[in-house]
C-alpha cells in the first residue's frame, strides 16, 4: 500500500487563495471599505488601510465608529464562511474555481464595544468562531492598530447559518 504523495505547495496555495478571493469578492461592501484579508495557512487577518473617507469627525480626527463596526462585522462573516468552507475545500468537495459557493451566513445580532479611539492609521482584525452549529454560530472579533495588545474595538456576532 502506497501513500498518496502530498500535494505540491503551489497547488495548495493557489486553491486557498482562490477560495478566499472568491469569498471576499462576494461581499461588495468589503471593497467599499477598502479592506483585504491576509492569510497564513487557515489563519486570516483582516487589514483596513487608512483612508480619509473612514474618518468620523475631522475635528478629532478618529475612525468613524460605523467604519470600525463594519470592519469588525466583515471580518467575522468572512472568518465564519472561511472556517465552514475549509474542510470541503481541502478535501476537494468544493472547487473554488467552478462550483457555486454556499450562501453567506446572516447576521442576527452584532454587539460592538469601543475600547479607545480609532486612530487615523491602518487597522487589523482577527476573528475566532466560538461556536458553530448547524443553525447558529457565534464569532468573536478584535481589532487593533499599532499595538496588538491594545485592541481599540471588539465585537460578538451571532449568525444564522445558510440552509442545507
Amino acid at each position: 500500500m502506497s501513500r498518496r504523495p502530498p500535494e505540491p505547495v503551489e497547488v495548495v496555495k493557489s486553491r486557498r487563495e482562490a477560495a478566499l478571493a472568491r469569498l471576499v469578492a462576494g461581499v461588495p461592501y468589503i471593497g467599499f471599505l477598502g479592506a483585504r484579508f491576509d492569510r497564513r495557512g487557515d489563519e486570516l487577518t483582516a487589514v483596513l488601510p487608512f483612508h480619509p473617507s473612514l474618518i468620523g469627525n475631522p475635528a478629532i480626527p478618529a475612525l468613524h465608529g460605523g467604519a470600525t463596526a463594519a470592519f469588525l462585522e466583515v471580518t467575522a462573516i468572512i472568518e465564519l464562511a472561511w472556517t465552514t468552507l475549509w474542510e470541503d475545500m481541502e478535501t476537494g468537495r468544493i472547487d473554488p474555481a467552478s462550483e457555486a459557493f454556499p450562501a453567506l451566513p446572516k447576521t442576527i445580532t452584532f454587539t460592538v464595544d469601543y475600547l479607545r479611539a480609532g486612530l487615523p492609521r491602518d487597522a487589523y482584525a482577527r476573528a475566532a468562531v466560538t461556536r458553530s452549529g448547524r443553525r447558529y454560530a457565534t464569532v468573536q472579533v478584535e481589532a487593533w492598530q499599532d499595538n496588538r495588545a491594545r485592541p481599540f474595538a471588539q465585537a460578538t456576532t451571532h449568525f444564522l447559518m445558510p440552509e442545507g
Partner: peptide, 27 residues
C-alpha cells in the same frame, strides 16, 4: 447604493452599512 451590498445574490445592503447609519444617528 450597490457599493454597499453585502450579498450580490440578493442585493441586500451589508449589515456594516446599516450599523454605520445607526451609529451616526445615535451619536
Amino acid at each position: 447604493d450597490p457599493r454597499l451590498i453585502g450579498d450580490p445574490a440578493t442585493g441586500v445592503l451589508h449589515g456594516g452599512a446599516i450599523s454605520a447609519l445607526m451609529d451616526t444617528a445615535s451619536g
